[in-house]
Design a binder for these strands. Sequence first.
DNA 1: CTCGTTTGACCCGTG
DNA 2: ACACGGGTCAAACGA
Length: 312
Amino acid sequence: MEIKEAEKLVIAKPVACRPVFSNSKPVLSGAINASPPADFSENAVAVIRPRTMRFKPTCNNDLVAAEALGSAASHPPKEVSESKAKSNVVYKPIAKLVSKTTLSLLANLGGHGISPTREITNAGAPIQPSNRVNHQNDPKPDIHPDFPVQSEKKKNATLENSEDDDKSLSNNADLRPLNDGHNWRKYGQKQVKGSEYPRSYFKCTHPNCPVKKKVEKTLDGQIAEIVYKGEHNHPKPLPPNHPAHDTTRNEVNNPNNIESFVAAPPTNDLLTAGTCNASVSTSNSSLGPSGECEEVSESLEAEGDDLKSKRA
DNA sequence: CTCGTTTGACCCGTG
DNA sequence: ACACGGGTCAAACGA
Ligand SMILES: [Zn+2]
């Protein structure tokens, strides 16, 4: 079992930009290397199958909600083999015990109480009971071998805060999974057995970006679990707003700062909020959806690459 | 029109 | 070989 995981990682690692899909389609498909990513797997199949049809004009939410409720109610609170979760949970903000309040608190604490320590950076550190971190994919791409693994992980493990103001509460489980500066498109949702909450599958909207993300949200709209898969190949889609300040650069330039970054939590608003505040300045405890944090992380990413280039 | 979400069916690995 | 379950696809919709 674990071997598989390893395999997966290995496969995903080298590419970083080629959605080879470690699954197995490509192999059977017939070595479609030259072909674009996962698009032609269908070719092999070439089966005409009438898929999903939508009839219900409304009450979708109701249905979903009802289902979720039913499931939740039906399922006893047994957290069985959760620990064994093969996937890598990137962030487990609240699971179900904490709620927005806690989030707020965390946000407030910012870089004081939590940021530098609880980071999930390495699995070694005992994350808080509510937070879980896992990375499903490659901790280290071939791209920047120089860079510390931590940074990579963090990069991948981008934490996400719940950025949910009111909408999250209103909407039960959807909206943007979390604004980490990237655009995600939801391509599926399922109710998994282990979890009482529905799991949503997101994909990076970038053309060549193979990054995927699994998000489990509680009925309250709180994030119960986040799993990242793969890493972005693009700098950052974030268009308007923060034009990336030199500050970031400087910081990155300084090894010390780099360390800070590494030690700092992933590009999470919540956790990073602290770091961001500390680094940039104390603006607002509640960083917007697209706060400087992302930039920092992004910068870090880019910088990391750059750095490595320079260093070399 | 374009982009993203919703959602049932399908694919495939595992037991 | 069958059943179960997680993950993905793609049509229908909506903004
Ligand atoms: Zn991406």
